[in-house]
Deep mutational scan, measured.
Amino acid sequence: TFVALYDYESRTETDLSFKKGERLQIVNNTEGDWWLAHSLTTGQTGYIPSNYVAP
């Protein structure tokens, strides 16, 4: 799992909003700078900017 370093507000319907400190499970990280992730807090799935999270 990864932890959010910053808050992120989604800009498209495929993005995932999250708050700093939220735990995220990475589903697919082969898309370059945008990873498909599942929030362990909200249960939602969407794309996140990879530079906003850390292991």
Rank of each mutant, 00 (worst) to 15 (best):
T1I: 15
T1H: 13
T1A: 10
F2R: 04
F2P: 01
F2M: 11
F2W: 15
V3T: 09
V3H: 06
V3F: 08
V3C: 08
V3Q: 05
V3W: 06
A4H: 01
A4M: 06
A4K: 00
L5E: 05
L5C: 11
Y6E: 09
Y6V: 08
Y6W: 12
Y6F: 13
Y6D: 08
Y6M: 12
Y6K: 09
D7E: 05
D7P: 05
D7H: 04
D7A: 05
D7R: 02
Y8M: 03
Y8L: 03
Y8H: 06
Y8G: 01
Y8W: 09
E9S: 09
E9P: 05
E9C: 11
S10Q: 07
S10R: 08
S10W: 03
S10A: 15
S10C: 08
S10E: 04
R11S: 13
R11F: 11
R11M: 13
T12N: 14
T12D: 11
T12G: 14
T12W: 13
T12Y: 14
E13R: 08
E13I: 09
E13A: 12
T14L: 13
T14A: 12
T14W: 15
T14I: 11
D15E: 15
D15L: 06
D15Q: 15
D15K: 08
D15R: 09
D15A: 07
L16M: 14
L16R: 02
S17A: 10
S17D: 05
S17V: 05
S17Q: 07
S17I: 04
F18I: 11
F18A: 02
F18Q: 00
F18C: 05
F18K: 00
F18D: 00
K19C: 08
K19A: 07
K19L: 07
K19R: 11
K19M: 08
K20Y: 05
K20P: 02
K20Q: 10
K20R: 10
K20F: 05
G21Y: 04
G21K: 02
G21D: 06
G21S: 04
E22F: 01
E22H: 08
E22V: 02
E22I: 01
R23Y: 15
R23N: 09
R23W: 14
R23D: 05
R23G: 05
R23T: 14
R23F: 15
L24P: 00
L24M: 10
L24N: 00
L24G: 00
L24D: 00
L24A: 00
L24C: 01
Q25H: 13
Q25R: 15
Q25K: 13
Q25W: 13
Q25D: 07
Q25I: 15
Q25L: 15
I26P: 08
I26V: 12
V27P: 05
V27T: 08
V27A: 07
V27S: 07
N28S: 14
N28D: 15
N28T: 10
N28V: 10
N28Q: 11
N28F: 09
N29M: 15
N29E: 11
T30K: 12
T30F: 10
T30N: 11
T30R: 10
E31T: 13
E31M: 15
G32A: 14
G32R: 12
G32D: 12
G32H: 12
G32F: 10
G32S: 13
G32T: 13
D33V: 08
D33M: 11
D33L: 10
D33P: 10
D33C: 13
D33I: 09
D33Q: 11
D33A: 12
D33G: 13
W34I: 08
W34E: 05
W34S: 07
W34K: 10
W35D: 01
W35E: 01
W35M: 06
W35Y: 06
L36D: 01
L36F: 12
L36W: 10
A37E: 00
A37Y: 01
A37S: 02
H38D: 03
H38N: 08
S39M: 03
S39H: 11
S39A: 04
S39D: 04
S39F: 02
L40W: 07
L40D: 06
L40S: 06
L40G: 04
T41W: 11
T41L: 13
T41E: 13
T41S: 12
T41M: 11
T41P: 03
T42D: 03
T42E: 02
T42L: 03
T42Y: 02
G43V: 02
G43T: 03
G43S: 06
G43K: 07
G43F: 07
Q44T: 07
Q44F: 09
Q44E: 13
Q44C: 10
Q44W: 07
Q44G: 10
Q44H: 11
Q44P: 00
Q44R: 14
T45C: 12
T45F: 10
T45S: 10
G46T: 01
G46S: 01
G46D: 00
G46V: 00
G46F: 01
Y47W: 15
Y47R: 10
Y47Q: 04
Y47E: 03
I48Y: 01
I48V: 13
I48C: 02
I48Q: 00
I48E: 00
I48D: 01
I48P: 00
P49D: 07
P49K: 07
P49E: 03
P49C: 08
P49A: 04
P49L: 06
P49W: 05
P49I: 02
P49G: 03
S50L: 05
S50G: 08
S50K: 14
N51E: 12
N51Q: 13
N51M: 10
N51Y: 11
N51T: 11
N51H: 13
Y52C: 11
Y52N: 05
Y52K: 07
Y52R: 08
Y52T: 07
Y52D: 04
V53R: 01
V53T: 04
V53Q: 02
V53C: 04
A54Q: 12
A54V: 15
A54W: 09
A54S: 12
A54D: 09
A54R: 10
P55T: 08
P55I: 10
P55Q: 10
P55E: 11
P55C: 09
P55H: 09
